[in-house]
């Protein structure tokens, strides 16, 4: 990559915020499914609570950092791709 002057970052408030809120939540649910699969030995009453607590940090972590994306389109692309990869992996591993 050439060290050109970086392109200005598009604000894209609506599309970025939506990407962060919607895909961030999807990613958070996927991450919680991954954690649930990793600690499967734990009794469900405990595991389910622990796993539920993972959702808000991941969700809001994504929502909080989504404005770093260069544009709304990129945010949807990257986060959507991450969702596909995560859910695809979970599905293939039989965790869903």
């Amino acid at each position: 990559m050439k060290a050109d002057k970086p392109a200005p970052i598009r604000r894209d408030w609506l599309s970025k915020s939506l990407a962060g809120a919607v895909l961030g939540f999807a990613l958070a649910l996927g991450a919680s499914a991954l954690l649930a699969a990793l600690i499967e030995g734990m009794p469900l009453a405990t595991r389910s609570q622990l796993v539920m607590w993972l959702v808000p940090p991941v969700w809001l972590g994504v929502l909080g950092t989504v404005y770093f994306f260069g544009s709304g389109l990129r945010a949807w692309g990257w986060l959507g791709g991450a969702c596909l990869a995560l859910y695809g992996g979970l599905f293939l591993a039989g965790a869903l």
Binding site: L29, S32, A33, A36, A37, L44, S48, V51, M52, V55, A95, L96
Partner: peptide, 8 residues
Amino acid sequence: DLQDKLMY
């Protein structure tokens, strides 16, 4: 509820 449907 969502997690119950998704993974339990």
